[in-house]
Design a protein around this nucleic acid. Structure first.
Length: 159
DNA sequence: GCCAACGTTGGC
DNA sequence: GCCAACGTTGGC
């Protein structure tokens, strides 16, 4: 079992949108970064647990947990000229980009904010809080996963 | 293969 | 809206 964190801008697609999706499941399409793609293609397995992070918004932070409900398959939006993430260089016979399906596990009881994550020495190695990080899909170590989950019930004035 | 220019991300 | 950090592009 692997752990991950995926970012999304709530103005584009937030945890509320996933909550209201049919089957609370959506394809995680539009990833156009090779590092992120490689992780999805090679390492994201059925049942892997994933933090859902809201970026570029009023209160950036982790807002929910999802799981991988289908492993990597070709991202067909790359072939659609009308799609925002259209990539004319992706060959339909050898698709360049992949996506996985994610299914909502649950919403967190509160947003675990970026500010809070940054303040924890235990999470110094978390890719999310490292300087200049821009990956939309990143691994989370099992200890980091457990630690972050523990924060959900912690007193928010502790930090 | 170098690297400057450019576009994007995302916190603030 | 600003801007730092980073990835990608393309001329050479």
């Amino acid at each position: 079992m692997n752990y991950w964190l995926i970012k999304s801008e709530p103005s584009t697609f937030g945890i509320e949108d996933l909550y209201h999706s049919p089957g609370q499941t959506e394809p995680w399409d539009g990833v156009r970064n090779y590092q992120a793609r490689n992780m999805m293609r090679d390492d994201m397995k059925l049942g892997d647990q994933v933090f859902f992070y809201h970026s570029n918004c009023e209160e950036p932070g982790i807002v929910g947990i999802v799981e991988v409900s289908r492993e990597a398959y070709p991202d067909l939006t790359a072939f659609d000229p009308s799609d925002l993430h259209h990539d004319p260089k992706s060959d339909p016979n050898n698709p360049r980009w992949v996506m996985v399906d994610i299914k909502l596990v649950r919403l967190l009881k509160r947003t675990i904010t970026l500010q809070e994550l940054k303040a924890k020495p235990e999470l110094a190695e978390l890719a999310l809080v490292r300087r200049g990080n821009r990956l939309s899909v990143m691994p989370v170590a099992p200890e980091q996963w457990a630690f972050i989950l523990g924060l959900e019930n912690a007193n928010t004035t502790d930090y």
